[in-house]
Every structure is written in C-alpha cells, then in structure tokens.
C-alpha cells in the first residue's frame, strides 16, 4: 500500500522489503511498506536516575512540565528544536531513543540560566542540560565537546601545578581538539600583545609558558584533589552502569 502523507512520518520509521513473500503472495517493494509503531510500550526508570546522579541533574524529578524553561530559553529563540522541557520529560519517562535523536543539539545550551530563574519548581534546567550533555558523552553517544576538552586541560593543569598557564592551556586545547595551532584570531591577539604590553609582562608570560611553575608544597594538595576527582568519577560511572564489576 502506498503511503500518501509520507512527509508526516519519520523516514526511519517507514519499512519496505525489497523481496518479501507472505503466505505465497509476493508483496515486494512498496506493497510491503509499513510504519514502525510510535507507541511508548514501557517506562525506563533508570534514565532519570542516571541523569539525577550527575552534577546539575539532581532536581529533575521536580519538573511538572509547565514549559517556563523552554519559553525563557535563549537558544530556543534561535532553534525551536532546542526544547529543555521536552528533554526533561523524555528523561523522566525513560524515552532514551527519542532523547538520542536530539543528541547533537543538546550541547548547545549557553548556560545563560534564564530557565533557572524562570522555573517555578527549582528544577535548575540549565544544570539538567549540563548533566544530559555530560551523560551523552559518558555513554559515548557524542564526542567530547570543545568545552569538555577545554575543561579537561584546564583542570589537568590546576591539579598538576596549582596554577594555570594561559599559553599552555590554549596550545593543548587546540591540539587536543584537533584544531590548527595557528589561528587568525590568535595571531592577531599575540601581535597586539607584543605591541602594547610592557616588556616585563611579556617576559613573565613567556617564561611561565616555558617553565610551567608550580605552587610551592603542592604535592599533598594535588594528591587529595586527584583522589577526590577519582572518587567522584567512579561514582558517576557506577551510577551510569559503566565499568561493570569484572
């Protein structure tokens, strides 16, 4: 049977067999076209619990679907498909496959927190967006975003030395995110700095980039922070059912 309003159906939900014989009747091609069901057949309670286990997602269960977040959203104004209210619902009801359809836009949250101030139930939707993007990365549904790569490098330096060094962060970020080290905007910025910054600051910057000084007596603090981060990460991974016990 031909489907007339095909544009109303998601392409992946239309199934056609090129060669199909049922009870001796050849229904190959469009004669065997059928539409995959949209029926929700079960709730996956684990999904909400997983998101709630990540920082920012703690209050997702408070949501009563009023839509204030989506209405307040900066990104939604530009991209109507960016709908925090909808994603919160999908997560709460465990509709994982639906959520994954939007995996490539969820990270677009700009953390303006307008939703946070609009939300009558203190769900902190911005936090939920952060947790969801985090969840997508941890589960391997999305590549680490540039902001994650930046955060990782930033954190690595702070933990290692107790300091951050701008030049190194920038270089390693560009390298880790597979971007060329020579960027037009970067060249511009460096040239302006060379032109306008007093020599002693320039010297200091260059020296720090080369030698990466550490905070004095840092090792103990570093160990404590590393231990804490490792614990937090392990807890998160356990909550998501990653690293099953072997």
């Amino acid at each position: 049977m031909a489907i007339h309003e095909k544009h109303l159906i998601r392409p992946e939900n239309i199934r056609t067999h090129d060669n199909l014989v049922i009870d001796g009747v050849d229904v190959s091609g469009h004669w065997s076209t059928f539409i995959e069901t949209r029926v929700v057949t079960d709730y996956n309670e684990a999904l909400e619990e997983e998101i709630a286990a990540l920082p920012g997602g703690e209050y997702i269960h408070r949501c009563w679907q009023c839509g204030s977040c989506t209405n307040a959203c900066t990104v939604n104004a530009v991209n109507p498909d960016f709908n925090p209210r909808y994603w919160i619902y999908l997560i709460r009801m465990g509709m994982e496959s639906e959520l994954l359809r939007d995996k490539d836009i969820i990270w677009q949250c700009v953390s303006c927190n307008k939703c946070t101030y609009a939300c009558p139930r203190d769900v902190v939707p911005e936090g939920v967006m952060k947790a969801t993007a985090h969840w997508l990365e941890m589960k391997g549904h999305t590549e680490p975003s540039n902001s994650t790569i930046f955060d990782e490098e930033f954190t690595r330096q702070v933990v290692k030395t107790g300091k951050i060094e701008d030049g190194r962060i920038l270089m390693n970020f560009l390298k880790n995110s597979k971007q060329p080290l020579v960027q037009d905007w970067l060249v511009q910025m460096v040239m302006q700095m060379v032109k306008h910054l007093p020599f002693k600051y320039l010297f200091g910057l260059g020296w720090a980039t080369l030698f990466a000084p550490k905070t004095k007596r840092w090792a103990k603090t570093r160990d404590a922070i590393e231990e804490h981060i490792a614990e937090e990460k392990a807890a998160e991974r356990a909550a998501l059912g990653l690293d099953p016990k072997t």
């Binding site: 949209r38 029926v39 057949t41 079960d42 619902y89």
Partner: peptide, 12 residues
C-alpha cells in the same frame, strides 16, 4: 495518549 509528547502509550 501521553499528551505532552503526542505519543500513544501502552504500558504494563
């Protein structure tokens, strides 16, 4: 029908 996602539901 789950009216918020406009989808039919059949839940045990």
């Amino acid at each position: 029908e789950d009216t918020l996602v406009k989808r039919p539901i059949t839940i045990p």
